[in-house]
């Protein structure tokens, strides 16, 4: 009994303090001081919420920059985050299967869509799926390869698109992160604004 009572009381203490009090306290502060972030960093266009700047979403129109391939649900399902979990020697990852594009197919489609020649080495993020399936970013290399297509489809100059990419380029951690990247939703929002 000398052990049972503290065991029970301490568990209840954890339920009350760390289970309830702490999250509600943090919610209170967060909703007061950081409303935007606390509610998912939503992006509004013309008063309508079009997504979260942190959560990747699919863009299929050739007028827009395309995000990385996604393994979340049927693609960018923000209620079902997931990677492929395919190993590096798995034929499914490399060659694909029925209803599943491998790196081979993804690379071919990317080249075709963006008119990239076989001599150009593709940036790896363009043909691999992220771990969350919700990666909101692509590398600048990837964006540049898509720039010509986006410019053409939207009827704007390549320089205009390149300027957008430059403006939105992020190089975090004092540039110690490896590759500069851009947020696809932010970029496409600006692309849409050009028209």
């Amino acid at each position: 009994m000398k052990i049972i009572r503290p065991a029970i009381v301490l568990t209840l203490f954890f339920v009350l303090v760390t289970g309830f009090a702490f999250p509600y306290l943090i919610t209170g502060i967060a909703q007061t001081a950081f409303r935007h972030q606390a509610n998912g960093s939503m992006v509004t266009v013309g008063g309508k919420v079009v997504g979260s700047e942190l959560i990747g979403q699919s863009f299929e129109s050739s007028k827009f920059f395309h995000p990385r391939p996604s393994a979340a649900g049927s693609g960018y399902d923000a209620n079902n985050s997931s990677g492929t979990n395919l190993g590096p020697t798995n034929p499914k990852l490399l060659e694909g299967e029925k209803d599943f594009d491998g790196i081979k197919q993804l690379a071919a489609k990317y080249r075709e869509l963006n008119g990239v020649g076989a001599d150009v080495v593709l940036p790896v993020d363009a043909v691999t799926r992220s771990s969350s399936g919700l990666d909101p970013h692509i590398t600048v290399d990837n964006a540049r390869l898509q720039a010509a297509r986006v410019a053409k489809e939207n009827g704007v100059s390549r320089a205009e698109i390149d300027r957008l990419i430059r403006e939105l380029t992020e190089t975090p951690l004092f540039g110690l992160g490896e590759k500069p990247y851009v947020n696809v939703l932010r970029l496409n929002e600006r692309v849409a604004g050009l028209r």
Binding site: G83, T84, L86, P88, D125, T128, R129, S130, T139, P172
Partner: peptide, 9 residues
């Protein structure tokens, strides 16, 4: 470079 299952950021 292996970016399969990794985030760009």
């Amino acid at each position: 470079a292996n970016m399969e299952g990794k985030e760009v950021r």
